[in-house]
Computed example of a mutant assay.
Amino acid sequence: MAKRCAITGKGPMVGNNVSHAHNKTKRRFLPNLRTVRVALEDGTTMKIRVAASTLRTMKKNA
């Protein structure tokens, strides 16, 4: 399953781990995904994976 937000499309980003000796190795920054139930227009519910930052924005705008 893709690590991608169903609403915003936010996905993994890439960067570097940097040690004290300034050695760089690749790493991935994964989005903070949460599974939530969403009520559809026809009355049924569906589970989608949404980033926590998207949930905060949706609560703020509701």
Rank of each mutant, 00 (worst) to 15 (best):
1 M>A: 15
1 M>G: 15
1 M>F: 06
3 K>W: 08
3 K>G: 05
4 R>A: 02
4 R>G: 00
4 R>N: 03
4 R>S: 12
5 C>V: 01
6 A>T: 01
6 A>L: 02
7 I>K: 01
8 T>A: 05
9 G>K: 00
10 K>M: 03
12 P>R: 15
12 P>K: 14
14 V>K: 09
14 V>I: 02
15 G>A: 13
15 G>H: 14
17 N>F: 07
18 V>K: 13
18 V>P: 05
24 K>G: 13
25 T>F: 05
26 K>W: 12
27 R>P: 04
29 F>V: 05
29 F>M: 10
30 L>I: 14
30 L>H: 14
31 P>M: 10
32 N>Y: 14
33 L>C: 11
34 R>S: 07
34 R>T: 13
36 V>R: 11
39 A>P: 04
39 A>L: 13
41 E>A: 11
42 D>M: 07
43 G>S: 04
43 G>A: 04
43 G>I: 06
43 G>Q: 07
45 T>L: 03
45 T>W: 11
46 M>T: 14
46 M>N: 07
46 M>L: 05
46 M>D: 06
49 R>W: 00
50 V>Y: 03
51 A>R: 00
52 A>K: 02
55 L>K: 03
56 R>H: 12
56 R>A: 15
57 T>P: 10
58 M>W: 10
58 M>K: 06
62 A>S: 11
62 A>C: 10
